[in-house]
């Protein structure tokens, strides 16, 4: 185990009833590394990153995040404190204003005062370029704005690692880039990121490593340059041909 290795996933197995979603998945992530996970739907990529912060349980294998094993008592809570997550459906709290969405975690889980939490929230809203929306309800924002609020909400917890579960899949095409821009900036700042996405342009720009999953297994990994030039497996090649043809 090297010092800068923040996520270690070893021989992870999971099944939903008879259906094996993850089969012997091994993946190590170093501090500051950006990993893009892609694959056809049902390949287990979302399930994999949801296992990392304990939203899904696994049957066997091990996950260690920043030296904390998910299986140790209280491990899940400690890991969640280090890991932020952005969902496909944003999952903002609809009954709270944007700023209250951002301050809830810091105030209740970290014990920040309202004043400090709001100051910090405004800082992150500026980073995602929507400070003027702070007092609005999520439903009054566009999808792209909502997803940026969701990113800011995660950042307010000062995570070491960010997980993105298809963050642009529920967005109208013209809003995808505003969310990706925020993610690119986050990557430039050195955030460790695990991103499940089909945005290959984004992958090319920021990914240190691409992980291709199919049928619950990691089929191929490599740098974007390697895999886009010459995918080693036929399955990855077929997949790339399908999503890149238009």
């Amino acid at each position: 185990m090297t010092a800068d290795r923040v996520i270690e996933i070893a021989s992870l197995n999971k099944s939903f009833g008879d259906f094996q979603v993850l089969t012997n998945v091994d993946l190590n992530v170093s501090l500051g590394e950006r990993i893009v996970i892609c694959g056809p739907s049902g390949s287990g990529k979302s399930t994999l990153i949801r296992c990392v912060n304990g939203l899904e349980q696994y049957d066997s294998g091990s996950i260690t995040v920043d030296g904390i094993s998910l299986s140790e008592p209280g491990g899940v809570d400690r890991v969640r404190a280090e890991v932020g997550m952005v969902f496909q459906q944003f999952n903002l709290f609809p009954h709270l204003s944007v700023i209250d969405n951002l301050t809830l975690g810091p105030m209740k889980a970290r014990g920040l005062s309202r004043k400090d939490a709001e100051a910090q929230a405004m800082e992150y809203l500026e980073r995602v370029k929507i400070p003027e929306q702070a007092r609005k309800r999520p439903r009054d924002l566009s999808g792209g704005q909502q997803q940026r609020v969701a990113i800011a909400r995660s950042l307010c917890m000062k995570p070491k690692i960010m997980l993105f579960d298809e963050p642009t899949s529920a967005l109208d095409p013209e809003m995808i880039s505003e969310v990706l821009d925020v993610m690119v900036e986050l990557a430039r700042d050195g955030m460790t990121m695990l991103v499940v996405t089909h945005e290959m342009g984004f992958a090319r720009k920021v990914a240190d490593r691409m992980v291709f999953m199919d049928g619950g297994e990691i089929v191929e990994t490599g740098t974007p340059a390697e895999v886009f030039e010459a995918p080693k497996t036929q399955r990855f090649k077929t997949f790339l041909d399908k999503i890149l043809q238009h």
Binding site: N53, L55, D77, R80, A81, V83, G84, M85, F87, Q89, N91, L92, F93, P94, H95, L104, G105, K108, A109, R110, A150, R153, S154, C156, M157
Partner: peptide, 26 residues
């Protein structure tokens, strides 16, 4: 929606905080 609980847990809320501040008000 289940996503509300998941989002609340990932921003560090405990089960009872999730209920009190996120789920029950809705």
């Amino acid at each position: 929606p289940k996503g509300q609980t998941e989002a609340a847990r990932t921003v560090g809320l405990t089960y009872s905080q999730t209920m009190r501040y996120v789920i029950l008000p809705q």
